[in-house]
């Protein structure tokens, strides 16, 4: 199974829809431990993504993802902008010149995207950030791929791992971002960045399952 350009465009639209639907939820999570803008920022970023999508929707998949990255970088406003911007820029590099993606392409994109986020944000697992959802997701995808699973099964494993990773941020003390000013008071709250990361991966899966 391969993912074609139309499915990639559908994935991006699905991500934008997920951010719009969860705008209040993400902002509520962020109001507990941050500056109460994550949902607003992600929704604003993805509205810009949708606005800039049509002119590149018939280009190679790399160009489409690089365009997503630039829209997020310019419109998000908070730390999620450079982080998800870097994530999708890495997607764009792996997908450069491609008209369709294999399971191994998507595995490489996720791994490169995670690496980009870790370098940009200097975060590691356990610091109550989006890395807590993304790193287990990348590992689960890679393990499923090594076990010979198909693309949908690999992505399903990644989403399940991201969900576990997201929930595992609840007892953690934040070490990065605005939440780290709160120290111990950040315990007991789910990280908004880990939550949006899981939602974005789930949006990709939804398109392949439909």
């Amino acid at each position: 199974m391969k993912v074609n350009r139309d499915q990639v465009v559908a994935m991006i639209e699905e991500m934008a829809a997920a951010m719009a639907q969860n705008k209040e939820y993400l902002t509520e999570l962020d109001s507990a431990i941050g500056d109460a803008d994550h949902g607003i920022n992600m929704d604003r970023g993805f509205r810009k993504v949708l606005e800039k999508l049509p002119p590149v929707a018939d280009k190679d998949i790399g160009t489409i993802f690089k365009n997503v990255a630039m829209s997020l970088i310019s419109a998000v406003g908070g730390a999620a902008g450079p982080l998800y911007g870097t994530f999708f820029m890495q997607f764009g590099k792996i997908a450069a010149g491609k008209e369709e993606l294999t399971a191994s392409d998507i595995g490489a994109m996720l791994a490169a995207g995670l690496e980009g986020i870790k370098q940009r944000g200097k975060a590691v697992v356990g610091e109550k950030t989006m890395v807590d959802a993304l790193e287990p997701a990348v590992e689960a995808y890679s393990a499923a791929a090594d076990a010979g699973k198909d693309l949908v099964e690999c992505l399903r494993a990644a989403v399940a791992a991201a969900e576990d990773g997201k929930k595992a941020t609840i007892p953690l003390v934040a070490k990065k971002g605005r939440a780290h000013y709160l120290g111990e008071r950040s315990v007991g709250h789910q990280d908004p960045g880990a939550t949006s990361a899981e939602l974005l991966l789930r949006a990709m899966l939804k398109v392949l399952e439909s």
Partner: peptide, 13 residues
């Protein structure tokens, strides 16, 4: 300072 549409935030571009 601020985002493209005038909210609080920062814009790399």
């Amino acid at each position: 300072g601020g985002t493209e549409d005038g909210d609080l935030g920062t814009d790399p571009l």
